[in-house]
Design a protein around this nucleic acid. Structure first.
Lengths: 232, 232
DNA sequence: CGTCACTTTGATGCTGATCAAAAATGGTGG
DNA sequence: CCACCATTTTTGATCAGCATCAAAGTGACG
């Protein structure tokens, strides 16, 4: 691991409160590794050997059953993931693959569990982080059960617009195929959804999105802080 | 609060490791209260003032948007709920109501947060409990995105059969209306799903269920530990 | 024993999946 | 830099799954 990566990682909410010495201890058995796009990091059902942190690139969490596959979430820097499995010493419930060229910190789960047992700063930070992750997942679950596919697309566009500076135009961060799975629909359906949203001022040119009738789109989407606000 | 309730509660995984004195401190500001069925305990969007523990009865966690309502989970004794909101000092993302006559421990969230900051036994226990809750939710989310309504019903029946002793017959624990919402479908559809499952050996007489062709039902349902095993 | 909520049944229509194929895009090697 | 290939995206046609609306049947409880 490059020494100049460390400060960057130490700044994570997860580690920032730890004593330097404790942090050094945690990280000494860890790897910081580069991956090309499309690499499978782990597969659901495997024992959770590592806790991961994305520091560059993007990671897709996905799950399969019955010949179907769906995306549970997409992680951007800087985010720790698979915390619950690592804490519980249980099998991964999701698989993970890199979407882009990515840089990941891999902390052996046994070491991590050992340290969460003894370092209360760390335990508290992990608890906060996991609580945040839990709430994110509740929102995703609510969205899935309470909204139609078209509403999910509309709200996704509104969230992404806000996230990229509320300029009224932005760039899709992922392939439409992956976006479709994240939104719980087929690529064909997503394409048609974009078509239907034209009358609500949505223009799609490749990955470039323009929202020209925000009001109308919001009337359709009916966003709510209790699903759409990432800080809530 | 009745003094003889305390030992019962102290036995919760959440509290069992705490020192007696700390536990007394936590519980001194708490209420242990009886509720009739159908009482709304709190509503999504409200600040999380209490952490709850069901000690008797059943509690339904539900959420609304757009005139739609869905059930996120149903809790039985003895379970702490709404941990993430209490930890995060954030608004509830779900509403809760009693389904039966119920007995609930209500711990002021501020007190709870205060103590998780200072008692590392408690912090660790909360972390474990929350990690378990997170994994339960991941399973629910996967089920929702990866299975059809009929498959969800079939798998629910298999899980419930196992939970009630694998006798091949058992009793539905909730109104079919509520069960339908939990499974992400309408009551009409659940009724029809039961009809379709007759050819797989499923008999429904009121709340009494009999499974006479387990093999066939499993062939249809394709249960997997990574969704259906509560201990995984 | 009447009322109210829950459940079932039937008819119909919308939402979204599937299948097939054309069009667009992006990366690669010549 | 261009031609080619593989992949992604779009478009069209069709179908299955599930919701909705309406109404009858059932059961619990005052």
């Amino acid at each position: 691991m490059r020494p100049d990566d460390l400060p960057h990682i130490k700044d994570l909410p997860l580690f920032s409160e730890m004593e330097e010495e404790r942090f050094a201890q945690l990280v000494e058995g860890a790897f910081l590794q580069n991956f090309p796009p499309g690499v499978e990091l782990f597969s659901e059902g495997e024992p959770a050997d590592f806790l991961y942190v994305v520091t560059e690139g993007h990671v897709e969490l996905y799950a399969s059953a019955n010949n179907r596959e769906t995306v549970i979430g997409i992680l951007e820097p800087v985010t720790a993931f698979i915390l619950a499995a690592a804490v519980s010493d249980a099998p991964y419930l999701m698989s993970a693959r890199t979407l882009d060229k990515s840089r990941l910190l891999m902390i052996p789960a046994s070491k991590f569990r050992e340290m969460t047992g003894s370092d209360s700063q760390l335990t508290t930070a992990v608890l906060r982080e996991l609580a945040k992750g839990y709430r994110t997942l509740v929102k995703a679950h609510k969205e899935m059960k309470l909204r139609t596919a078209l509403e999910r697309v509309a709200n996704y566009l509104l969230r992404e617009n806000k996230r990229q500076g509320s300029a009224g135009h932005f760039v899709l961060q992922h392939d439409k195929r992956i976006l479709a799975a994240l939104l719980g629909m087929t690529p064909e359906n997503l394409s048609r959804a974009f078509g239907s949203l034209q009358e609500y001022g949505v223009t799609v040119e490749g990955t470039r999105i323009t929202l020209s009738k925000l009001k109308d789109l919001e009337t359709l989407a009916k966003p709510t802080t209790l699903i759409d606000d990432p800080d809530y």
